[in-house]
Simulated scan of single mutants.
Amino acid sequence: MAEHNHEELAGNRFFWVTILNVVITIAEFVGGFLSGSLSLISDAFHNLGDSFSIVFSYIASRVSKRRQNARNTFGYKRAEIITAFLNSIVLGVVCLILMIEAAKRISQPEPINGNLMLTIAVIGLVANLLSAYLLNAGSKSNLNMKATYLHILSDALSSIAIIIGGILIDLFNWTLVDPVVTILVAAYIIYEAIPIVRQTFRILMQGAPNIDYEAIKHDLLQLDGVFSVHHVHAWLIDENNIIFSAHVNMHDMKISQVQPIYLEITKILKNKYHICHVTIQAETTRGEDEDIIYDRGNDIP
């Protein structure tokens, strides 16, 4: 019941954040064209992308809750990772396009209505801060939510920069501020998106988590009956769930005697190393001299 209420609350927050972004997008497109501000128009495109990303993020979060089945034996948690990866890539591409357009504006400046630009930017800032507040809680432990939250937070920063630009244009007629602000904000957004792209790409490529394999081997060798550990694999389903498999050399014994050792191994890996799924292959002498990480040719042909 608690999980259902949490999902319902998350759904409500996604809904209101989407509505806010649509309102901001329309306001900034209209205000940008009327004022001649490239930074407002660029932020409107940014917000339009955010609206789509929020919807996709919500769909992905719902899909990720589906239970594993014969088609997806590890479940659907990767749906959020894929969405976070694509959202961050799209955000980076949009920012590069805006930086190119801003560079053109620097060489060919255009007149800008600073008052209108400032008014629309203030409205956008208020709406973005409210959206960021709604998504803040889920962004700390979920890459999908973090990517969406980053979109919203970058919009808030864009609005602040546009406000400053609007003030300078209104007071001093410094129209050059508009494309400069666009470039600075776009560069910052790309800088913030790169770590998410790297982390999600690593997960999608079955990258290993940051765990101490030698410490794991040392701990397992303390168990009675275990004398070697080799051929270890570890990978991430998402940013929170680690899968682990290993070949463990044990003294020759009955399967009924092996089972308690399995339970001890699983307990150590789950409690100390936060591994959620453990697969152990018991062996006697096969591979006992191999390294803990297999590196002798093709591993999984």
Rank of each mutant, 00 (worst) to 15 (best):
M253D: 00
L263C: 08
G225Q: 05
Q259P: 00
H231E: 12
D252L: 11
N271L: 06
E264W: 03
I203N: 01
N271M: 02
W235D: 03
I265E: 04
V232R: 04
Q222K: 14
I268E: 04
I265P: 07
Y213W: 02
H233K: 09
V232N: 03
D212L: 05
H218F: 13
D224S: 15
A208S: 15
P260M: 01
F244I: 08
L263H: 14
M205Y: 02
Q222H: 14
I242Y: 08
N210K: 15
Y262L: 11
N249S: 14
N240P: 10
K217V: 09
P209M: 10
I261A: 08
I211N: 03
K217P: 00
V258D: 06
E239H: 10
W235R: 06
I265D: 05
Q257S: 13
D238N: 14
L263K: 14
K217A: 11
V232W: 04
I242Q: 07
Q259V: 12
Y213T: 05
Y262H: 10
V258F: 00
V258L: 12
N271R: 02
E214F: 08
H218E: 15
M250S: 10
I216G: 00
A246I: 06
V229M: 09
Q259I: 14
I203W: 05
M250H: 08
D219A: 11
S256Y: 03
I216W: 06
E264T: 05
S256P: 08
V226D: 00
S245H: 12
I211L: 12
Q206D: 15
D238R: 05
W235G: 04
D238P: 02
N249I: 05
P260H: 01
V229R: 04
P260F: 02
L236N: 11
M250F: 01
K267M: 07
I265G: 04
Y262Q: 06
